[in-house]
Every structure is written in structure tokens, then in C-alpha cells.
């Protein structure tokens, strides 16, 4: 069960090898999290994450393999994960790829792959778990979106559009979950130094997985609907969204 501060005891993570997801889990294990099901497609990465989480105090960590683009398996995996935990306090949806804008934008299959991995798959995952949580009568879905989806820009529009789609879907689902006991929180990090961004130039307001994790925990504690990480990005993107296109094109990052 979640406690008064929203701290979960059990969690399912889809995209269990994500640097941000693992940082969030470590932060939650330091509080109440004890039993975890990690879902992902990279078995070696999952095994590493298992060791890491057990080292910080998780009692039971299981893994399940799933490629979220295989949407036909999503429902089964969600039910299986829920059965293993008994009660699902938190679902962290962290599956995603950055893609390579330069080559992807002329490659129909690559574009479809990024959008399926980042939008279609996670939306299917969220749908499966939303049904479970509604029946269960409580539980929180935390979705890793991105500020890149706030206003999609030329330099990464494939990724940005995928996150914009996911973010919109999550906003709608959050409304749909009102009054069911379950809830949904959207996390919009800025540029985070992870494996995903290795070798790329940091954007302004660059942050780290642990800093994002701290913001996520704080967001849960205050029942936030949306968490920006770092927090000033809420204001920054609030302004950037309104900029005329002429100026928007000149914004660095």
C-alpha cells in the first residue's frame, strides 16, 4: 500500500533498465519500496538493475522480458506482474528511445519505431495497468515524458513528437482516473545525463538521474499532477511555448 506520503511498497517498472527509472527506484527503496518487478527487453541490463536494487535494500526484485512494441503481449505481462506483487502500489512507465533525428527523419521505419517505442507501447502499458489499478481501487502510474514534447522543435521532432503524444495521452488518462482511487503523475525532465544522451551536448538546465529521482519522490509526496525536472523548466517552457516561431527557432538547445 502507499502510505500517507504516497510512498509505495511495491512497484512495476516498464523500461526497467532506464537510468532515470533505476534512480527513482533507488530513491523509493530508501523509503518504503521493498518488492519490485522490472520489465524490459534487455535481460542483461535487467539483471544488473536487480543486483543494484538488492544492494540498496530491495527485498525481492523480479524481472520480466517485454518489448513494449509487441503490444499483443502487454496485457498478459501486466497481469502477470500484478499477480506476482499481489498489490501494485506504483507503475513507473520509463520505456523509451531517443533515436537519431538526423538519420531517422528520412527513414519511415525508424520513425515508426521511435513512435511505437515511445508512444504506442507505453500507452498500451498504461492502459493495461490503469484497468488493474482501477479494479484494485488505488495505485499511482508515473510516466516519464519530456519537456521535448512541450513544444516540438526541428532538432529532435521525432523524439519530441513521440513524447508529445505520450504526454497528451497521459494527461487524458490522469483525468479519467479521477475518482477511481488510482492516479497518474507526469514527469517532464529536461536534458538528463544518461546512457541515452551519452555523446550529445547538454542542453541548458541539464540534470542527472538522481536529481530527477529526487524531484519524482517530492512530486509524489505533494500529489503533483506534473513534475518538471529541474523545477524551473516549468516556467521556462511555459514561456517558450508561447514564443513566436521566428524566435522559437533561435532558442538554443
Amino acid at each position: 500500500m502507499n502510505d500517507a506520503m504516497g510512498m509505495p511498497q511495491t512497484a512495476v517498472v516498464v523500461g526497467g533498465t532506464s537510468d532515470i527509472a533505476r534512480a527513482v527506484l533507488r530513491a523509493l527503496v530508501a523509503r518504503r519500496l521493498r518488492r519490485i518487478v522490472l520489465v524490459g527487453r534487455d535481460e542483461i541490463g535487467l539483471a544488473t538493475a536487480v543486483k543494484e536494487l538488492q544492494a540498496v535494500g530491495a527485498l525481492e526484485v523480479e524481472t520480466m522480458t517485454l518489448d513494449v512494441t509487441d503490444v499483443s503481449r502487454v496485457g498478459v505481462v501486466a497481469r502477470d506482474a500484478a499477480t506476482r506483487l499481489g498489490q501494485v502500489d506504483l507503475v513507473l512507465v520509463a520505456a523509451g528511445v531517443l533515436g537519431d533525428q538526423g538519420s531517422d527523419e528520412d527513414d519511415p521505419e525508424a520513425v515508426a519505431r521511435v513512435l511505437t517505442t515511445n508512444t504506442t507501447g507505453p500507452a498500451a502499458v498504461m492502459t493495461a495497468f490503469a484497468t488493474l489499478l482501477k479494479n484494485q481501487g488505488y495505485g499511482r502510474i508515473v510516466v516519464l515524458s519530456s519537456v521535448a514534447g512541450m513544444r516540438v522543435r526541428r532538432s529532435n521532432y521525432v523524439y519530441g513528437a513521440s513524447k508529445a503524444g505520450l504526454d497528451g495521452f497521459a494527461q487524458g488518462m490522469a483525468e479519467a482516473l479521477r475518482g477511481t482511487g488510482a492516479s497518474l503523475m507526469i514527469v517532464r525532465p529536461g536534458w538528463v545525463a544518461t546512457r541515452m544522451t551519452t555523446g550529445r551536448d547538454p542542453a541548458p538546465f541539464a540534470t542527472t538521474p538522481d536529481a530527477v529521482a529526487a524531484d519524482v519522490v517530492a512530486g509524489i509526496e505533494r500529489s503533483a499532477a506534473v513534475v518538471f525536472s529541474p523545477a524551473p523548466l516549468r516556467l521556462v517552457f511555459g514561456v517558450l511555448r508561447l514564443l513566436p516561431a521566428v524566435l522559437w527557432r533561435r532558442v538554443p538547445g
Binding site: M1, D3, A4, K134, G137, G179, T180, G181
Partner: peptide
């Protein structure tokens, strides 16, 4: 959806 007097940790029953 119920909570206790502290109005935390809601659940549907």
C-alpha cells in the same frame, strides 16, 4: 473513494 480523517492515501472501496 475513502480516506481517513487525515485525508491521505485514498482508495476506492
Amino acid at each position: 473513494v475513502l480516506t481517513g480523517w487525515g485525508r491521505t492515501a485514498p482508495s476506492a472501496c
